[in-house]
Design a protein around this nucleic acid. Structure first.
Lengths: 207, 207
DNA sequence: GTCTATATGTGGATAGAC
DNA sequence: GTCTATCCACATATAGAC
């Protein structure tokens, strides 16, 4: 039996090296995508950036979609972390801070936003695992709203529409600028006034 | 000189036939795009739908981008027409009707919305002529807001953010549903209250 | 004049040599 | 584990049949 396994436990070493290479590939993918747009990711270019030929990438990712999926997971994780640990001073402040952080997260990297929030790559659908992180972020937002006393589903949907609207207009019509960023506080104030003016909305039962 | 021009004036006939074929191609392109997504437009498929081979399309459009551009122009024209002739009963009603019409226009055809409002095809930029129609629609909205007494640029930007936010959330998270459509009236009311509560904003001069 | 046949270049992806 | 060679689908361009 001696010598049957020439590598007693180098498995973790291999795995670590492998993970490092995958990370390197993903970094290169992000740089391409940020430079030339999300749709401009070509495996040949990507391979060249990490000193490989295109087919070698298939040792690390099963397909181009798998690369997009890993990028989606990274982006979603970054978004979740950006939204974590917001100090709650008063009702309005927490929401305001949340809006600012999300806006900053989304507009600071247009390519990432396109990957996460628009379904723009033909045929690409994020895997359940990758998507779970995105859902977690939404849950966190929901919880934050609830902490402020907002539990009405309509009010929650309205909130997401407001924030996403500001982000979208900023990205589409004034990328890199502040035309819609300047409207965040006003929008939050407007939203809070609206929610306050409406009845708490009965949790169940029609009319 | 006689006989030099064997076709004295069939030019308009030819032109008419040609335009008809172009229209037929565009119709087929829309149907493909609505079925399989905006990015799924392949010239082979498109040609097959109109009984041609791919290269023949180049007799009618200089490139694939030219097809997208013609589609963009058609979409923008449809949007402009959808927003025209809104009866102005009272300030709120006109805005409300405008929001509903735009929402309906944008959400009723996701592929068209993607072409018009998201820059999703790599390398495609609408021609100035096609884009002019889209700008015209925005001007119309601006004029409608002005008719209601809203001329503050910030208030105008806020309006577009609100409407686009509702549209985006509807398309992204509940396509074909009414989850955000139901919030249009509430959003308009909220917006009008906000605009009314703020000072008219001095047209010029800082502070 | 209109379309077909054909060719080129660029993608993603796979098989097999080393 | 990385390479070369290759395949297939696609957009695109040109030559020539009808």
């Amino acid at each position: 039996m001696l010598g049957d396994r020439p590598n007693p436990a180098p498995t973790d070493r291999r795995a670590a090296r492998r993970e490092a290479t995958k990370a390197e590939i993903l970094d290169a993918a992000w740089s391409i995508v940020r430079e030339n747009g999300l749709g401009a990711l070509a495996l040949r270019d990507l391979a060249a950036r990490v000193g490989m030929r295109a087919p070698s990438l298939y040792q690390y990712f099963a397909s181009k979609y798998a690369i997009y999926d890993a990028m989606f997971a990274q982006g979603a994780r970054a978004g979740l972390e950006a939204m974590r640990e917001i100090p709650i001073d008063d009702p309005g402040a927490a929401l305001r801070e949340g809006a600012h952080r999300f806006f900053e997260f989304a507009t600071s990297d247009p390519a990432r936003a396109q990957l996460l929030f628009q379904r723009t790559i033909p045929g690409f659908v994020p895997s359940p695992e990758a998507y779970a992180t995105a859902v977690e972020t939404l849950e966190l937002t929901r919880a934050r709203l609830a902490a402020v006393g907002i539990t009405d589903p309509d009010a929650t949907d309205l909130w997401t529409a407001l924030v996403s609207g500001l982000v979208n207009q900023q990205l589409a019509n004034d990328p890199g600028g502040t035309r819609w960023a300047r409207l965040i506080d006003r929008t939050v104030t407007m939203y809070l006034a609206d929610v306050a003016s409406l009845p708490p909305a009965p949790t169940k039962g029609k009319k």
